[in-house]
Amino acid sequence: MNKILISSCLLGVPVRYDGTMQQLLHPQIMTWQQQGRIIAFCPEAAGGLSTPRDPAEINNDKVISNKGDDVTAAFRLGAKKTLRVCQQYGIKFALLKESSPSCGRNTIYNGEHQGIKIAGMGLTAALLEENGVRVFSEQQLPALLQALA
């Protein structure tokens, strides 16, 4: 059975920027866990960022924290490590956290730290898609299930 990469925060691991999680409770995820199909991964933690950490948003191809720090290198490193994991396990599908500067599939924040979402992709989601991994957000779980069927 094929493995599926899932954002660690969606599996109940408190790795989000604010030290929390956004656990996605769904019977299919529990089934995948029992089958050993899930690879949990947090690109931001893999890139060396701490938990908690300052919120960051994409602005002009850079990832900038709300304090003005450029954290692009850590986000890029995390994206590359995520791609390596997908390649190592032959992963073709990923379920990632929407609106994250790493994992956002359809939306990200506008880069001005005002809580405004815009259409766009996080660095990890974009890199995975560019390399043949189909990325879905937690809001697209039915579409992922259909793609896997």
Rank of each mutant, 00 (worst) to 15 (best):
V133Y: 10
Q23C: 05
G68N: 13
L123N: 02
A74M: 07
Y109Q: 03
N131S: 00
L25H: 13
T124W: 01
R84P: 08
S100W: 08
P52G: 09
S100H: 07
G48N: 11
P101A: 02
K117F: 03
M121S: 09
A94Q: 04
M30R: 13
L25C: 14
G36E: 06
E98S: 07
E112N: 13
S65V: 06
S8R: 07
W32Y: 00
I108N: 08
A79V: 01
K3S: 13
K92D: 04
F93N: 06
E138T: 03
I116L: 06
C103H: 02
I29P: 04
N106Q: 12
G48H: 15
D61R: 04
S8Q: 06
M21N: 15
A119S: 12
R37H: 04
C42P: 12
N60E: 15
D69N: 14
Q28V: 09
I38D: 00
E112V: 02
A149C: 08
Q88I: 09
D18R: 06
G36N: 07
Q28H: 06
Y89G: 02
L83T: 04
S8C: 10
I64C: 12
Q28D: 13
N106M: 05
I116P: 04
A94L: 03
S7P: 00
L128I: 05
Q88P: 02
I58L: 12
N59C: 10
K81Q: 12
S100E: 00
T124V: 09
E44C: 05
T20S: 14
L123W: 10
A46V: 03
E129T: 13
G19P: 04
E138G: 07
E129Q: 12
V133I: 12
T31N: 10
Q35R: 14
L10D: 10
R134F: 00
